[in-house]
Simulated assay, not measured.
Amino acid sequence: MAAEIAARLRVMIDEGELPPGARIDEKELSTAFDVSKTPLREALKVLVSEGRVTHRQYIGYRVAPIDLDDLASTFEMLHGLEAMAGELLRQRVSPAQVAAIAAKHRRMVDCHNAGKRLEYFRLNQQIHQMIVDAARNPVLTNVYASLMSKVHRARGAANADTLRWAESLGEHEAILAALEDPDHANLPQILREHSENTAREVLAVLNRTRGNAPSAREASDLEASGKHEEVAQSDQS
């Protein structure tokens, strides 16, 4: 039972239903899952060991915050992998693979039109992995899947708040058009730009949720920028 509860909570956290920093109400969850607190706490301990949940005595359980510096670095790697997949796809993608991606895309569009945000998010994730799998490079596939698992929770949290649906869907339309084009024109660039736009939106949403406090990287950049301005002013004087 604890394993089943952990699996359900894992999905709730990874897909944004329980956002970063949220307090976990044991009584509420026990009622919702129709279980006692004992298996629930066993499940929460598992999620603590995974880094998805934190626990402090007298305070209780909370969804673990997301390290935005690590997230930004992971996204930077993903941009390059998306572009690499695009280059390989231009030489290797088969008509059957394009047809399968197109079918999945149509299902995603239906979810968008019906306002089914969670289903849309899941199909979106599946399409990205299908695109990389179509490059037929097992090392690329494994590295990409590993990094995507690191950003999945962040994307889920942002997906619960963002209104970028229409823009993202338009970018997916462009990706599909490039896949269906025999020349696959600009496919690497289109994939990279979509990845960059997604990262920008996810980081912006999480920064707003966090209360606009700059991350360590942002603080460092601001400090460097300030020193640069001081030097420039000194040179002018």
Rank of each mutant, 00 (worst) to 15 (best):
A22F: 10
R23D: 12
R23N: 10
R23P: 13
K27T: 03
E28L: 00
E28P: 03
E28W: 03
T31H: 07
A32N: 04
D34R: 04
V35W: 09
V35H: 07
S36L: 06
T38P: 10
T38F: 00
T38W: 02
P39R: 05
L40V: 04
L40C: 01
E42N: 04
A43N: 02
A43G: 04
K45Y: 02
V46A: 05
L47F: 01
G51K: 12
R52G: 13
V53H: 05
T54Y: 01
R56E: 07
Q57W: 01
Y58M: 08
Y58A: 15
I59V: 11
G60F: 05
Y61L: 01
Y61I: 00
R62H: 10
R62Q: 00
V63E: 01
P65R: 12
P65D: 10
D67L: 15
D69H: 00
D69Q: 06
A72T: 04
S73R: 15
E76K: 02
M77Y: 12
L78E: 10
L81Q: 11
E82Y: 09
A83G: 07
E87T: 14
L88N: 10
R90V: 07
R90L: 15
Q91I: 13
R92Y: 05
V93F: 09
A96C: 03
Q97V: 13
V98G: 13
A99H: 10
I101G: 11
K104Y: 10
R106V: 13
R107L: 14
V109S: 09
H112D: 04
N113H: 09
N113D: 07
N113G: 14
